[in-house]
Design a protein around this nucleic acid. Structure first.
Lengths: 342, 342
DNA sequence: CTGAAAGCGCTTACAG
DNA sequence: CTGAAAGCGCTTACAG
């Protein structure tokens, strides 16, 4: 394994200059930089991680996060993943800070981002809104040299470094697969989405319906209603739907509002006529409904991994990535959970 | 964060002595060692990973593996996991070697172990037989200071350092959960195990039946037959069973021989009467059967992770573990796969 | 634009 | 049994 020293010797320059050239730092004679890079390639040089890690310690890398975790238990495990990655990397000088917000209101997210802007972070990890205003904010950060990545919800046109989270289309595919597997003679489906204007929710529905069609599953979409990710609204829209259509035998929760929606089902149907219920994720409330057999199955996108991987990828990017290639997105695979496998 | 230097200063000794004391290396005055350990505790000292990693490089840690991978595609992904962890850690001086064997014959495993014994490895990772002879061999290794861990198949009484692999009982539970989920009015089940004398296979069957009972699933075990993990035997035992009992509507493959067994089902049943088929793992042959809808669902224990995690845990143990606490076993969670989620 | 030097924290061969 | 010193490979503040 070639080291910086080998390259310095061969090029007849100091190790400092090699470091500057290979990491594209400012102030190296372009001719010499070129020569150094050529030699590095010839020697098949790759930066040694152990060396980088020890040297980087002095920099005390700081990563800032924005999470809409207030009142949303989904983020509990995301935070555990973030914390545990931070612990893993603290010996290398990493520390983190989380800005907590509630929901997906633009002004509130902007305020949090401005707070983060003042914090002199090396990088930011955001779960935020896919809007023009936010897009531009992210672009501003990156121009300043602050790397930005998205967790759980992407802002694809922001030129963020990478995304860690579900492929929403595929999670819809997974639920349709479950319905095929269970193989009821007919599926009269009530879809309870969060909002018809959230792309992730619509992607799920599209993946779901495309797959039902592809599989030639026998189904009818009885209605699509919106919960606004609220338990209360979830209750009332499900209750109305059940009263309006008595053919419903399957309820597909695309987003939040599951606990409320399930309560409406319990209150308005007999046990023997209860529709099969499918949803996503696993928070304490849905876990208990799964264990009781109310919810048939839930499709999960490991929340711990979303937090852990985001920190890991960003840290590695900060420490090891000398050229400016973007890390690949890390798509969390959908996992089918049933009460026997939590 | 306290460093070795801080402790050395406080104790009035050199850093070398601190290192020797904290890592329980030979030749330190016990009184002084005690004092050093006390100070370390007071300062809340933990070994810095970056420092260890760079220093350890010179040692060129070597890990040896024994895998019964010849002719067994399950291990393809285990090996990819091993390779990728090795690549991850090569900057820290790690290299590995794999001894390949076919099947689970004692003499052949013993020969491989003796070969590994001569190789001067710092640690061994084994997928081997749970037998007294092997147990003793593992004990011998550990007495010599070679750490041993088990992958995929445990040798629990060998005092091995840790185990990475499935909990076989739980994988039986998972399949029974799937059968509950699909909710057929009656399940007349043919169990095709690998061997009635392999503990892992029996554990699966136990988890399966316990869970069918717990769930009050309506079922009959029509017969239990052995495939000897062979496609050919799988074919013939399934064919005989189908000819003997025409009530079979569910076939549960506990181990290998799935491809042969499925062929027998295809050859001996009409499409509309075909039993639901459940199995474990995903090798090219079963993948294709899953995609075609012949196999209903398979329960997987991420093979890549089994390889990756085994290397990672062992490497970390070798580098960071100063006291002699055993790392925890790493149990791979069962994952339900259907054709929509591969 | 470049070099010499110190430093990140741990480990170990060597000398005593 | 212990210390002084060199070393793992990369980074950076400083001097020029």
């Amino acid at each position: 394994m070639a080291t910086i020293k080998d390259i310095a010797n061969k090029a007849g320059v100091s190790r400092g200059t090699v470091d500057r050239a290979l990491n594209n730092r400012a102030g190296v004679n372009p001719e010499i930089a070129k020569k150094i890079k050529k030699i590095a390639q010839e020697l098949n040089y790759t930066k040694n991680k152990a060396g980088s890690l020890l040297a980087i310690k002095k920099k005390n890398i700081k990563i800032g996060c924005l999470l809409p975790d207030i009142g949303n238990h989904f983020f509990d495990r995301v935070k555990i993943g973030i914390k545990s990655a931070t612990k893993e990397f603290q010996d290398y000088g990493l520390s983190i800070h989380i800005e907590h917000v509630q929901g997906f209101q633009l002004d509130c997210h902007m305020r949090a981002l401005e707070k983060l802007e003042k914090g002199s972070y090396d990088a930011l990890l955001l779960t935020t809104i896919n809007t023009k205003v936010i897009e531009n904010k992210i672009k501003t950060f990156q121009k300043k040299g602050i790397a930005v990545a998205c967790i759980n919800t992407d802002v694809p046109n922001s030129n963020r470094l990478f995304y860690v989270g579900p492929d929403y289309y595929k999670s819809g595919v997974a639920t349709a697969g479950l319905i095929r597997l269970i193989n009821k003679p007919s599926n009269n489906i009530l879809i309870v989405t969060g909002s018809l204007s959230v792309k992730g929710h619509n992607d799920r529905i599209k993946g779901f319906i495309d797959t039902l069609n592809k599989n030639k599953t026998n189904y009818n979409i009885i209605d699509i209603v919106e919960s606004n990710d609220s338990e209360k609204v979830g209750y009332s829209v499900v209750e109305s739907a059940l009263k309006k259509y008595d053919s419903i035998n399957t309820v597909y929760f695309v987003a939040a509002g599951v606990e409320g929606g399930c309560k409406a089902i319990i209150d308005n149907t007999l046990v023997k006529n209860r529709p099969k219920i499918f949803c996503y994720d696993l928070v304490p409330a849905t876990l208990s409904l799964l264990e009781k057999g109310i919810i048939e199955s839930t499709v999960i996108h490991n929340a711990y991994d979303q937090g852990y991987k985001a920190i890991e990828l960003m840290f590695n990017n900060l420490v090891f990535n000398n050229d400016s290639t973007k890390p690949k997105d890390y798509i969390i695979k959908p996992e089918i959970h049933i009460k026997e496998i939590i």
